[in-house]
Design a protein around this nucleic acid. Sequence first.
DNA 1: CAGGTGTGGTAGC
DNA 2: CATCGCTACCACACCTG
Length: 958
Amino acid sequence: MNKNSNSQPKSNEQEIGDSTFEAFNGTFSSTQFSNDNLVEDPSFDDLAKDEFMECDDISPPRKTPFLNDTKSQGTLDASLTELVDQQPDHKETKELKFGDYETYFYHKKLKQQEKDDQYVQWRTKNSNQFPPIFSNCVIYVNGRTDPDITQLHRMIILHGGVFLNYLGAKSNATHVIASNITPRKIIEFKNFKVIKPEWITDSIKEKKILDWTKYTLFSPQYDQKVLESDRELKEKSLPLNRPIDATHPEFLKFFFENSRLHHLSTWKADLREKFQQEALRASKVSQTLRTKPKIIMHIDFDCFFAAVSALSHPDIDFANEPIAVSHGGKGSSDVSSCNYAARKFGVSNGMWVNRALELCPELKILDYDFKLYEEKSKIFYEELTRIEPDCIFPVSVDEALIGLSSIDDEESTLLNICEKLRNKIYVLTGCTVSIGASYNVLLAKLCLRKAKPNGIFFFFQPNNVGNFLKNIPVKQLPGIGRKIEDRLSNHLNKGSKETVTISNLSSVSRDTMVKFFGIKTGTKLFGYCQGLDDTDIDISKNPSKFIRKSISIDVNWGIRFEKQTQVDEFLSRVADHICQRLLRLGFVGARLMLKLARRTKGAPIDPPKYLGMGLCDFLSKSTNLGAPTREVGLIATELKSLYRIIGVAIADLRGVSVTISELQKCDSDATSAVDQKQLQFEAKKPKEKKVQGIEQNVLKGGSVFPHYSPAKETLQKLLQKHLVDLDAFKALPNEFQQEIKLELERRSVEQLFEKSPKKNRNRNCLLQNRSLKKIGKVRPETQNKRIDLISNQRTLNKLTLNIPIENLGDSVIHQKTELSGLTMEGQKTLVNSYWASEKTKTFNKHYNLGIQTFYEFEDWKNLLKDWVRFSFENENEKPIGIHENDLDVFYGFIHKLILNEKIYEVLSLADIITCSLNSSELVDNDTNNESDWRKIRGELLNMLKTNLVQKGACIDTT
DNA sequence: CAGGTGTGGTAGC
DNA sequence: CATCGCTACCACACCTG
């Protein structure tokens, strides 16, 4: 750094530095760094060289394609273990196989790249002669080559490239190297740049990356063939391969690959997770309390997509030619980004292309290049890290907030840092960034607005803040969008179209704002008008605050369905997609929400935007999943029933959105159950209330399993669960009523009966599910007729074969939907006094099923084994036993399984109970416990049977 | 009052 | 032909017990 600052011309620094602090509104769009002058500036040349040396010294060659780094090694190892542990005969795992295949290769790739890294480090230790010319390349070598694959491999990685062992369908290979190629491979590689190996060797000789087009493999006589097969392929596969709308099986993949907003959102989430993880790691190492950073820098690319897309069009004069990025060149496609030349014509982001072309007929439309955006972003963040700020807060793929606590000789040094950063990013990415800096986030953001394009703007004069703010439109304030602006405009200007500025708000009191916008927004807005903002961007101060709280998928384009089956298929695919994301991100979730967009009455059937959603009403409904899970089948069924509960006419459906929340971290790991539990306690900290008892217990030096005390909320929940409806209660036989009353008396809550509770709103599906799960629990007659399904494999086969499978899906959903509105007379309220009373008297320990995390079905199996073992452990010369709360969670899961036709799974769980009880490990010191387990096992089979009978399955009980 | 649920708004290009 | 209008998070209104 110091070395470089010497090469910076002093005069510039002085000139800019002076003006900075003379007037607060000075802009530094220093022409010195505009694209044209940049390269010719001699001092810059030095700087650039220097910087490159520095890169070479410090940064290791690209390890994995961008953003994949966030995957921890642990996850991958675990995924692999999962893969190996799969039982081929198991239905669940069979379905997972395809995804895991990819995981397997991913893992392999990572291992390989690790090895590569080690090799590169070793080789470059004593020599510095490998310029990273392939640093943006991901290269796959095909077939026999000269030099051979091993040599090419070495050449590529030593020069900063990534070598691919396997070319996956979604592979991000940038180049394919081959000397010979079969016609078949020509088709296979038709989407790749296929280049001769000489490209590698020559590039290394020249010490720079050469134009690959001069090294393409397809010789002229092949070209014809390529074209032919290409056309052939296109013609044949066009109707099949190109999704038209969401009825196509591959629609989701296709849609997300091309959606800018999807990319923006996932990049953001990934960055957030990455920095959160780093902060978490850092805060464990040093617990020093940091003060709030004194300087906030807000740094952002100028029209990021447009600038990056233009890089692949060297013929374009980016500074003067109007450019926009969108899909296709006309019609209702969104302009996602446009350069400043285009903005002069009134073109803006979000505008439709046809409108933009009206405003600016010579506007050039460029395509998206999501991969390149990612690459440039990676470089950007690498550079931000390199200046070693106090903290980095990612705002977007191309935008970050940076906190600096103090720098010596603040003013000139800050400017120096900013200019150098801008230079470096320009050299490395070919795109310009702007920087705004101030003493809080609000003002830094506003400074950035003033700095754009390609400039720097500082504001450090608290006394002058009123002056600084007065002409700022309120729309520019963070968190103030179109709606709030509209409301302000209506209130203040009475409909006139003038933009509302901060000075317009000076007369508005804090109370008025709070009344208008609520306590939070109102207070925030009032503070903003005084230039106050206490947002803290230091993630490391409270990393757990930034942990992910939900995962969602939104599709509001291309949604056109005619039949219920199409909707259901789509929901299944969404479920599959979201479960894959849960797996990849290492989460399980306990709550599911479905949000639908329905064409507003009177809105045109076909909106102006092709396959767009048009004007819509949004309707949402959520449900609890019983236990944290990522079971695809379960989630799919829940979605389908939620869809029916919301009840949007299929023809009016325009958008589908699925959110899973109440997440728990769950990097499936082969650690022991107890270890897992302890990890869970840490991970669950955000929800302190629920874990409190446990934590206290641990602090007291006691067991991690808390003693059960019926707290108020638990009691409420119990009532909710067991007493769904008072009418239903009254309809019960007398002895049942007595039993329940006695039990509740024991808990001294019988006064709750005196009140007459309102009719249950039936809002929550889960409530009904819970009541359903109790069905048939203590009916002597069914108990007597209980059949032993497990012991008789023939019965099992018959059982599963006799179910009218093709109708099951419908009946399941139908059944659930009906339940949400209807009561099942006499069956609704069933309390099993046995579990409720005796359990709490004798057994007082949780196994804590409720806070376990559940991955796939295998984990439930292990958990159950463990739980059985645990219940036999001795405490005060009595076995710990089974806690009703655990049992509740367990039954909840079983119920969901049954609803999802996971018959085999339920049976195998029942089987596990039998096996565990027969295992010699257990000390048979209390027959009660064993008989409890046998009852539970019987209950599983009973629940299963009841459900199957309802569906009309023919069960052979002989 | 604590909590749950449904809805609405915002940000990035 | 077109076109790829996502997603995480906060805040709030309203309801229940």
